[in-house]
């Protein structure tokens, strides 16, 4: 897999203080990909979902996974976050193999943020408690500091007045934005977004994608599984088309969307276009 995305460079963006932890890196390892997936194979029961997946995600870049439903986008993200064990192959985070059964899984998950399609906010906690749970309990930040930061993040998303609400009282778009804040509150090295707009009404998709755009500007490294092709084209540094358990085609958005080389990719994009989503 030689898909190299345009490197967003060593110069931190203007809003870089936000993703401070994500930007800090050891000198000399500048080109080390944040995430490297090598020949990963995964099946559930009898069905083979990932046959031989390989890809690299350079620092401060956004990799978008596209492909039909069931092509393994979500499975790949779940494997990267160690919610699933891979059958074969290896996944590296900052050059360190995380699929080795001897790795400390909790330590790996602490460095990866995840946002799910169904938000998965904790219904028994207020918005602010949802956001500060991991900083306080996992990263042992004092309550005041965690809450101050949580409020600041909420404020930037225009959700400051919702801090004391319970998630069920928010709209889907608001819940998903809170889920994004919760995922970045621990300053993760890598953010995995799994179809985060798939459960939303079309009118609410925009407000969530705006947050993702904002995170990209701050230099957050992200892997995004999505069906929003227009958004993929805009935000991606690298697009990977998953089909038949492999990365069938990858490249810049211009390459994959503009001049797809593979017939399967062309067919997928045509179907999506006909469905009116491009």
């Amino acid at each position: 897999m030689s898909a190299q995305a345009p490197e967003s460079g060593d110069a931190p963006g203007p809003a870089a203080m936000e993703a401070g932890a994500a930007l800090r890196k050891e000198p000399g390892l500048a080109q080390e990909p944040v995430l490297r997936v090598e020949s990963v194979r995964k099946s559930y029961g009898g069905s083979l979902v990932l046959r031989d997946i390989g890809l690299e995600v350079p620092p401060h870049s956004v990799t978008v996974l596209i492909g039909a439903s069931g092509s393994g986008k979500s499975t790949l993200l779940r494997c990267a976050n160690l919610l699933e064990d891979v059958d074969d192959g290896a996944i590296f985070l900052d050059g360190e193999e995380i699929t080795d059964p001897r790795t400390d899984q909790d330590a790996v998950r602490r460095r990866i943020g995840v946002v799910f399609q169904a938000y998965n906010l904790f219904p028994h906690m207020t918005v602010l408690d949802n956001i500060t749970l991991a900083p306080r309990r996992v990263h042992k930040e004092p309550r005041a500091a965690a809450e101050a930061r949580g409020r600041e993040l909420l404020d930037r998303l225009g959700l400051a007045d919702r801090a004391g609400e319970y998630p069920d009282r928010l709209s889907g778009g608001q819940q998903q934005r809170v889920a994004l804040v919760r995922a970045v509150a621990t300053r993760p090295r890598l953010l995995l977004l799994d179809e985060i707009t798939a459960a939303l009404d079309p009118e609410l998709v925009g407000e969530v994608l705006a947050v993702v755009r904002d995170l990209k500007e701050q230099g957050m490294t992200m892997v995004v599984a999505t069906h929003e092709m227009a958004f993929a084209r805009e935000v991606a540094d690298q697009v990977c088309f998953l089909d038949g358990g492999v990365v069938l085609e990858s490249g810049t958005p211009q390459e994959v969307f503009g001049a797809p080389r593979r017939p399967r990719t062309r067919e997928f994009l045509r179907r999506i276009t006909e469905a009116g989503r491009l």
Partner: peptide
């Protein structure tokens, strides 16, 4: 189970 998955993804240990 998605609640546990969400908690574990945040880095919380099993008992947390």
């Amino acid at each position: 189970p998605s609640q546990r998955a969400a908690a574990r993804s945040l880095g919380l240990s099993n008992s947390q």
